[in-house]
């Protein structure tokens, strides 16, 4: 399988409810909650494009855009 490289995290700020699921389960501690309690990529360079944050978000608020390398 080709390795995937992160292009961007698209976070729908008006949909995110700050539940912390994506932050808690990210295997690389890429995500965090900002001062408004909304998810943001604090360490995007560590992202491995597994997309688990996207699949587990109850609010469909996060999309991970990747490219094959």
């Amino acid at each position: 399988m080709a390795k995937k490289k992160l292009k961007a995290h698209h976070i729908e700020r008006t949909w995110c409810k700050g539940c912390g699921i994506c932050v808690h389960f990210c295997p690389k501690q890429v995500l965090a909650l900002d001062e408004h309690n909304i998810a943001y990529p604090a360490a995007p360079e560590a992202c491995i494009c597994c997309r688990m944050c996207e699949y587990r978000c109850p609010d469909l608020a996060i999309e991970v855009e990747c490219q094959e390398t």
Partner: peptide, 17 residues
Amino acid sequence: FPHMWCPGCGHGVVLNA
């Protein structure tokens, strides 16, 4: 959207899947 479920409600994960 945003939907009516509480923050972290599992019902949203079911919708997603």
